[in-house]
Nucleic acid binder design. Structure first.
Lengths: 110, 110
DNA sequence: TTTGATATATCACTTATGGATATATTAAGA
DNA sequence: TCTTAATATATCCATAAGTGATATATCAAA
């Protein structure tokens, strides 16, 4: 089922989903959470959501809570998932910092 | 030539390439720049590079310098490209901030 | 003159994303 | 009670994005 070496760098929807699952949430709640947190800017549809959930479960970054009934399956980030998220936050912060630096340096003689 | 509604949110390689082109650079130099800036962490191969260059030119976010000879075609971000990059930095900063907030809030009683 | 670095470009394959759709449950009204 | 909207999970399938491999060609140095 694919999965491979990807997830080394997280894409935007994967990043958002992992953020959402720092606290336990079921699928639909993830969609709503992301939409709210981004002021409706970023929407994750069901296809993207369940595709990514499957992949994250396969990679051991999230897991379904055992008691959760199938009508409302609750997921949460595993310890590995939290670690991964922390790394990804750092990685992305570097990107943002580089962007800001380059923009602010622009124009000024090198 | 494709292009569509994409480029609304920039993916990682597109973001890096646009950052590189805040100063004029030719293709190969972009590859090297990104590799250096990321300490070899993030590499952009030629296929990705030229695919994205084409797309960015089509979208008016970068342009080839008119004098540049075809053996060493130099590109640079347009005004629209700089604006886009600024927006993207803000968008990504929000994502990072959300990630940090969520991680640091975790565990503490809601 | 051969080799490695520079440089651009495309092919063809894989991966990622997401609209549309299907199905089922639940809660609130009329 | 019927019906409708919101909740909820899931997949199909088409499009978009990313990329290793490969093909060329030039240039500088040994």
């Amino acid at each position: 089922m694919a999965k491979g070496k990807s997830l080394e760098e997280l894409t935007d929807p994967v990043f958002y989903i992992l953020i959402a699952l720092v606290e336990p949430r079921h699928g639909y709640a993830i969609m709503q959470y992301v939409e709210e947190e981004t002021q409706g800017t970023f929407k994750i549809g069901p296809a993207t959501l369940y595709t990514i959930i499957k992949k994250l479960v396969g990679a051991g970054l999230i897991e379904a809570e055992p008691e959760s009934d199938p009508r409302r399956k609750t997921y949460a980030a595993t310890a590995a998932g939290i670690t991964k998220l922390e790394e990804e936050v750092v990685r992305r912060k570097r990107m943002v910092d580089l962007g800001m630096l380059v923009l602010q340096t622009k124009g000024r003689g090198k």
